[in-house]
Amino acid sequence: QLWTVEEQKKLEQLLIKYPPEEVESRRWQKIADELGNRTAKQVASRVQKYFIKLTKAGIPVPGR
């Protein structure tokens, strides 16, 4: 299922709330739990694509 604008905005906020961890899967699980309707795997996939998009555009990656 496609990500809504609201989900993307919340994801961006949660990336700041939950900074990078030694075991990133824990971070994705915390974010997924707060989103409520996404799995950690879906979050990880979305974040990877989002970070690539930001990097290509020369925009700083949130939480890094």
Rank of each mutant, 00 (worst) to 15 (best):
F51N: 14
E34T: 04
R46T: 09
G36F: 06
V47P: 00
E34W: 05
S45F: 05
K56D: 14
A40I: 04
P19D: 04
A57K: 13
L54A: 15
K53D: 12
R27S: 02
F51E: 15
Q48T: 12
A32K: 01
Q8N: 12
G63A: 05
K9C: 01
R38W: 06
Q42G: 04
R64T: 11
P62I: 06
A40K: 04
G58C: 05
I52R: 14
L35W: 01
N37R: 08
G36M: 05
A57C: 06
K10I: 07
E12Y: 04
L15I: 08
R38A: 06
L14E: 01
K49S: 12
G36W: 05
E22Y: 04
V23M: 15
E12S: 07
L15P: 01
D33K: 07
A40D: 05
A57T: 10
L14N: 02
L54T: 15
G58L: 10
E12C: 04
E22H: 10
P60K: 06
L35R: 01
K30C: 04
Q48G: 09
E24K: 05
R38K: 14
Q13N: 12
K30M: 05
T55A: 12
Q8V: 10
I31H: 00
Q48M: 11
E21M: 07
T55P: 15
A57Q: 12
I59E: 15
T55Y: 05
V61F: 08
R46K: 10
K30V: 04
Q13L: 12
N37Q: 10
T55R: 13
K56F: 01
Q13R: 14
A40R: 04
K53A: 09
T39R: 01
R26V: 13
V23K: 09
L15S: 02
F51D: 15
R64S: 12
P20C: 06
R64P: 15
K30Q: 04
R46D: 06
R46A: 15
R38C: 08
Q8F: 03
I52D: 15
E34Y: 04
I31D: 00
R26K: 10
L35K: 01
Q42C: 05
Q13K: 10
F51T: 13
G36I: 07
R27Q: 03
F51S: 13
E12I: 06
R26I: 15
E24S: 08
G63Q: 04
Q42R: 01
E21I: 05
V43W: 01
K17A: 08
K41N: 11
A32F: 01
I59T: 13
F51A: 15
P60E: 11
R64K: 14
R26W: 09
A57V: 07
Q29H: 05
L35H: 01
G36Y: 05
I52L: 13
K30L: 05
P20Y: 09
K10H: 13
Y50K: 11
I16F: 07
G58S: 12
K53Y: 06
L35A: 00
R26P: 04
V43E: 00
R27P: 02
K30S: 05
Q8Y: 03
E24Q: 09
Q29A: 09
I16D: 13
L15F: 03
V47I: 05
K49V: 03
Y50L: 09
R64G: 14
G36Q: 13
K53E: 13
I52M: 14
R46Q: 12
L15W: 03
K49A: 10
N37E: 09
K56I: 03
K17I: 04
Q13E: 15
E21H: 04
Y50A: 14
P60G: 12
L15R: 00
G58Y: 03
K17P: 00
R38E: 02
T55L: 07
A32V: 01
Q8R: 04
V23P: 14
S45P: 07
T39P: 03
W28E: 02
S25F: 13
Q48W: 06
Q29S: 08
I16S: 09
W28R: 00
R38G: 03
R26C: 11
A40T: 12
L54I: 09
L54M: 13
T39N: 07
S25H: 10
W28G: 01
Q42S: 08
S25C: 12
P62R: 09
Y50G: 14
A57N: 13
Q13Y: 08
V23Q: 14
R26S: 14
P62A: 11
S25L: 08
G58P: 10
Q29D: 12
Q8K: 06
L15Q: 00
K10R: 12
K17H: 03
V23R: 08
V23G: 07
P20A: 12
A32Y: 01
R46N: 09
K17S: 05
K17R: 07
Q42H: 05
P20I: 13
V5A: 10
S25A: 13
V23Y: 08
V47S: 07
K17G: 01
D33T: 09
E22F: 05
T39C: 04
V23D: 13
Q8E: 11
